[in-house]
Amino acid sequence: MTRPRLGIRNLSCGRGERALFAGLDIALVGGEAARILGENGAGKTTLLRTLSGLQQPLSGEVIWESASDRPADDALLLKDELCFVGHDNALNAALTPVENLDVLMRLCGRRVPEKRIRATLADLGLKRLAHRPCGRLSAGQKRRVSLARLWLTDAPLWLLDEPASALDVESRAVLCARIATHVSAGGIAVFTTHEALTLPDVPVRSIELSPC
């Protein structure tokens, strides 16, 4: 089985004109996770957004090589195989977790039956909240609903911005287990975190961002 590969070549990113970091080189293959390290304002979120394609790098390039045999110049390739959990939860306050997740999965081009969404929410201990507007959930509950995407997606590349924020110890362990399963199944996960996230039995590489 070929493995997907995420190559970062001589990457410089910045906010506006100002470079936050420069000359970043790293290659990740399927079966590896990477944690982005750096102080506040070092550009961790900027790097994740650049990897996702939301933002253009100042220079350098990001290369995604798929495990599928689709041609590499297929512009939709990365978007098709990406699950991006941003700093914000992407949950509308007036919609229920089930409705929100349904739309989010469709946006990724994946149609997930409602039954499966409800089952996943139940597995994550959110069964009681499945039909309550997200605006009435606590910060931690919202984060868990948003992270439920990770149980619904089959995308090989995960980009997670502070996935563990507002999570309690127990949910954090569940999250770690999920990331570890994904990675050991040949996927790639790149994440930032302030909390200690230990992924059992999975190589975690560090991407150190130093200010330039």
Partner: peptide
Amino acid sequence: KPDYEDGTLEQYVLSPE
């Protein structure tokens, strides 16, 4: 605006659609 504030807009932009 609501989609911009809650992060849904990022998901629109990242959508393969």
